[in-house]
Amino acid sequence: MPQVALTVNGKKVTVDVEGRTLLVELLREKLGLTGTHVGCDTSQCGACVVHLDGTSVKSCTMLALQAAGRSVITIEGLAKPDGTLHPMQEMFREHHALQCGFCTPGMVMSAIDLVQSHPEGLSEQQIRHGLEGNLCRCTGYHNIVKAIAAAWPLMHGKAMPAAAE
């Protein structure tokens, strides 16, 4: 059986996998990181989004072996070791951006990528468009959009440029 060596949430791991093992299966079933969810089988829902070398990817549409030698961050790896939440997690809580919590890990990972990749700021429409790859059935997205806008200044350490708002 092939082996894959990669870094997950800062820890180096080496795991036996099949060729067909998906990254999400590696995370959930081999490493017990069940925070990453599977909500569909057509790469649409985004519940499985993780960061691969700092960018968001759908872990259900990637083979575990494709992640060899790379660094994966999951929802479990976001908070500081002392439990302090990432600003995005904090803003999701503050703005009631989650209900059942199932889409939440993927939504948070996707949102962090969105904010990081827009240092120039994000308008409401850009946030809404940027969440195209994540489905939520509970919140109607209203509070998710608010939470992401609120996380932007915390992540960039400055006020959102007025033009973006």
């Binding site: 790469s43 968001s56 990817v57 549409t61 996707s110 990528d113 940027g130 790859g133």
Partner: peptide, 9 residues
């Protein structure tokens, strides 16, 4: 194309 996660891969 697709969504940003698709565009990343």
């Amino acid at each position: 194309i697709g969504d940003k996660e698709v565009r990343h891969r």
